[in-house]
Amino acid sequence: MCLIVRVAKRRVGVHIAGLFDLFHDRPVGTSGPVIKDVDIPGLGVVRVVHAVDCLGAMCPRPQLLTLKVLGEVGPGEVVEVVLDNPTAVEGFPALALTLGCTYLAAVREPDRWRVYLRKGL
């Protein structure tokens, strides 16, 4: 009896886990240190030290993550934020002003934006 319940439970568990696959299961809003050189049109090559991945994230997560990351990097360093939320992108120039950093560029790609911010004015 106990075994049947346990098996049934596991079946249900598998079913529910299967439902998860309908949704994308990539973690939303992750960030990590990277070192890469990016050629930003109109600005030249810029070294990025930290990338924030906000694909699929709803506001205010992108803003809060950016706030946090900018607190961790050093002055003059560049952070890349990858977004697919048009509303969040719109707010980044204003966000940069408040956070005391320089809004370098928003590079448009087919399904995302890459926003570059430099710490410090």
């Binding site: 205010p60 048009p86 509303t87 204003a94």
Partner: peptide, 23 residues
């Protein structure tokens, strides 16, 4: 709304979350 990314939720939220008065 789409053109202006006119998100009224961020009008009150961003004042506290990131201190941005844009919306």
């Amino acid at each position: 709304l789409q053109y202006g990314r006119f998100c009224m939720a961020s009008a009150v939220r961003d004042l506290f979350a990131v201190k941005v008065p844009r919306m």
